[in-house]
Simulated scan of single mutants.
Amino acid sequence: MVEGKVVVVTGAGGGIGRDIALLMAKYGARVVVNDIGASLTGEGLDAGPAQKVVEEIKAAGGEAVANTDSVSEASSAERIIGTALDAFGRIDCVVNNAGILRDRFFHKMSAEEWDAVLKVHLYGAFYMSKAAARHFKEQSSGSLIHMTSTSGLIGNIGQANYSAAKLGVTALSKSIALDMERDKVRSNCIAPFAWSRMVSSIPTDTPEGKAEVELIKQMTPAKIAPLAVYLASDAASHVNAQVFSVRNNEIFLMSQPRPIRSVHRSEGWTPETVAAHAMPALQASFFDLERSGDVFSWDPV
């Protein structure tokens, strides 16, 4: 489905990114495997993970090159796209998958912990997408696939930085889709459920935590890859500005914010009438204070 296309997958040295890179190559894409080889918190550098995935792809008869630049700076994002152009002469798809975690309760979170996560997830998605955009525009084609998270779409505890970044990524994706629709450039999001380093930090010191981890372990990163390959292909030319989620063998189309209820008062509002009229009328439609796990409350199938 992606025969001959050139695809960059960031954070592809392991987990979800690795499986996307492998399946892209299996379906005929030439792949730039990007990974700085850092720890879950973004520390330490190792070229090994990216090169190992390249060797896996080549051993299976595919084409791939490694890149170890960071997505968190504009200049290095340009070098990642430059690797695709130098090796394969074009760029057709970018999968913005690279990520780190610095989990902490909001009131205890440092500015550095906030900045580090936003730089990789949100700034990284912006820098990578922008670096590819002019090439997409020139060739009147291109697909951007961004990894978001239900931590941002719904909510999670101890992840203010990650949740803000991931919800920001969904808004960025929608803006790109609107701005570049006339250039036939598509931008979509996937919120993945899968066992990877990004969820391996879930506490297991309670029975509930242990049970949650065991369920997530059933959801392998390979389950995410088919949707990513499809979104990169010409078969998905009509799919734009959507947010999907993959949970084991389930694919969800996620909602996007829209008005759900309104109240009107012809003479306008005062704080008193807001309290007496507006809030009682709207309260039946309030959303509960839920985490991702509360909304996805059934076992994966």
Rank of each mutant, 00 (worst) to 15 (best):
L215R: 11
I157R: 10
R261W: 15
F286R: 07
I157N: 11
I251G: 11
P300H: 10
V7M: 10
T68E: 04
E55V: 09
I81P: 04
A236W: 10
V7K: 04
D46P: 14
T204R: 15
P207T: 07
I36A: 04
A29P: 07
H238P: 03
A25N: 01
N96L: 01
M109H: 15
F252Q: 08
R291D: 12
R18M: 06
N249R: 14
I20F: 08
E181M: 12
E214P: 03
N156P: 00
V7E: 01
A131I: 05
M279F: 10
G99L: 04
S143Y: 04
H107A: 13
T270Q: 12
V213K: 02
K26G: 12
A132W: 04
F105H: 10
E181W: 12
T220D: 03
I216F: 10
A164N: 09
T204I: 14
L253E: 06
H146P: 05
S187I: 05
G15Q: 00
A50V: 03
Q218Y: 08
D183Y: 15
L144N: 04
L153F: 01
Y127N: 13
V54K: 03
H264K: 15
Y162L: 00
M219R: 03
S173L: 09
D86H: 13
L227W: 15
G37E: 04
V54C: 02
S233M: 11
Q242V: 00
A165L: 05
Y230R: 13
L167F: 06
E73L: 01
A60L: 02
T220P: 03
E272N: 09
K58R: 15
H107Q: 13
S200E: 15
L227D: 09
A64D: 03
Q218W: 05
M147V: 08
T206A: 10
A66E: 04
I251V: 15
N161H: 10
V8N: 01
Q218T: 06
L167T: 10
S173F: 07
K166Y: 08
F244Y: 13
E112L: 07
G124A: 14
N161Y: 02
V213Q: 01
G15D: 02
P192N: 14
R79P: 05
Y123R: 13
G37R: 02
G37I: 00
V169M: 00
G268R: 11
V213G: 02
Q242K: 01
S141H: 10
Q256V: 15
F244D: 06
M1H: 11
E3G: 11
A235F: 08
V8Y: 02
L118V: 12
V263F: 04
K119I: 06
R247W: 10
G209P: 02
A232R: 07
H107W: 13
G158F: 03
A74M: 14
G268M: 13
S149Y: 04
Q139T: 05
F88M: 12
G11R: 05
I251N: 13
R258D: 00
Q242M: 00
G44M: 09
S200K: 14
V169C: 01
S140G: 05
N248W: 12
L22P: 05
L45P: 00
F296V: 02
T150F: 12
